[in-house]
Amino acid sequence: MNLEKVVFGFFIVLAATLNFGFFIGEIDNPVHHDIYELFAAVVVNLIATVLKFGDRTQIGAIHLATSLVADLQLLAAAMTWGYAVHVTQLGLSASTMSSIVSLSGGALFANVVSVVILIAETIMQRR
């Protein structure tokens, strides 16, 4: 067993689970979506991205690409949140909330792809 592999797998799966935790619930109900969970998802996703740096294999490249997509989507969701609350001062309306959650849903998809690649890579290994 390799500690590096454990850490790598841990962060990728954690990124997906946190993302899922935030995503689940009624799409336009702010009560179902916690801001701390979104924050954790963003941070863990960023760490997962950095962990994927510097791998020159084809699979490594796809890994990095999915992570970058997830980062982009989650940051967009966080920015939408901040804009709604602080810039427009309108607070979280149902439509803003649903756009935040749907953005995080896109990130969730990218994270699921990442997990699938991780599993496929593990299965391909013969030992």
């Binding site: 701390y36 941070v43 950095v50 740096f53 510097g54 020159r56």
Partner: peptide, 26 residues
Amino acid sequence: FLVLRRLRTPLIVLIVIFAVSVLGLT
């Protein structure tokens, strides 16, 4: 790729410090 690989640990340290600071402040 060499740069990215070498900078992996410092970048993660920076992200973690930033995240902990922001979280604590909230």
